[in-house]
Write a protein that binds this DNA or RNA. Structure first.
Lengths: 124, 124, 124, 124
DNA sequence: GTGGTCTAGACCACC
DNA sequence: GTGGTCTAGACCACA
């Protein structure tokens, strides 16, 4: 996995975990990778993954069974979905629209770009 | 001006300056506010504004006339515009599309939201 | 280390770092001294070293691994070498020739001086 | 005249004046341009030329006749020549040699570059 | 431990 | 008046 320079790694890891859940790759009430496993897979310091898991626990996305590992919460999917949708509609989208306006990009151009995005995505 | 918590102040100041230029409030070959003036206006330490101006100089957006102040470069507008467009198309837009896909938001919904955005914007 | 009066300290530090790399004392992909360490060694304020490192990062000579420190870029040596050669041939050398011309110093005299320079240098 | 970014303008003006004298364009005991004239010719602030002339007076290169203007000192040429030669041999040349050594530039290459410099210079 | 940001305050060269 | 440099000291996020 390639990490962006602009954001701290542990936050990018929380996003990664949430996405796995949203895409139903990690299912509810199932065990997620241990701190060490994920750390070695992502090639980061275990402390960093630990930090991410702690945050996810606070957010109620995962919970810990002592000695057994971390598990996806029952309502994790819904939680993530609504939180993400809220953020998207309230802050990301307006910012995008603002930039489009500033750069003079039309909705038609956006539409055609979205279609080729879907096409590219479909191929994979 | 209110600064966001998520980004360092000096970077927000560079964005602010670029915005002024893009909106043609500060025109090319004209003097921009002195370090001290902008600092007192934004209520930050002069060093912080200095840091921002230094970065803008390196990016070729402004240049310094010794003892006189900082001036908007001749090609500042184009530079900012193309840099911003590049960033939008290469990274912001794909991220937006990815999120739309993840959240199941259709292009039609986006379109209608954009129209109401334009309408809101127009009213002001 | 003794700093010259004519140039700002932070610029002299960037030169110092580049010199270490050019002389292969600090090798590529290796960690360079931390901001605090170099600052206490050179007896300057950490901010001053910070300023130098920031510039070197922008020039692509070093890069930062978050929380770990700064590392010499893979192509740092080549970058520094070509930048330095460019500057020498385009500006330092013509200036030297101009002065020689003005002072009536012949190329033969220069040659003999260079030889004794090499001899002196060799002895050390 | 084009001023370098690296050095203060008033110092570059003193160098300019000294060079005129060394090249015998401004001869001893003759009047040099007034502060205002030189300022408008070089397109700088009169204060800046004033500052340069003050320094030249301190160095004994020029002297002031009240109400008449500034004149080249009798021994200006010799003074400038010896000062410049001293600086060249003691500091500029060793630095040049050091850089040549570092960049692996041979004395033969230097020689050929000097010849083409002389040729270029001769044409003008 | 690492870099990074910010403030306060001083001093300087330059125009 | 202008920018620029430097110090001292604090605080934070990150690994």
């Amino acid at each position: 996995m390639n990490f962006s320079e602009n954001q701290s790694i542990y936050l990018q890891i929380t996003e990664f975990v949430k996405e796995q859940i949203l895409l139903d790759k990690w299912k509810k009430e199932e065990k997620i990778p241990s701190v060490r496993d994920l750390a070695s897979e992502l090639q980061v310091n275990p402390n960093t993954v630990m930090h991410a898991y702690e945050l996810l626990q606070q957010q109620g996305v995962i919970y810990n069974k002592r000695g057994l590992g971390n598990y996806v919460s029952d309502d994790a999917g819904e939680k993530i979905f609504s939180e993400r949708k809220e953020r998207f509609l309230k802050s990301e989208l307006p910012a995008t629209f603002r930039t489009m306006h500033l750069l003079g990009i039309s909705i038609e151009e956006l539409e055609s770009r979205f279609k080729s995005f879907l096409y590219e995505n479909h191929k994979k």
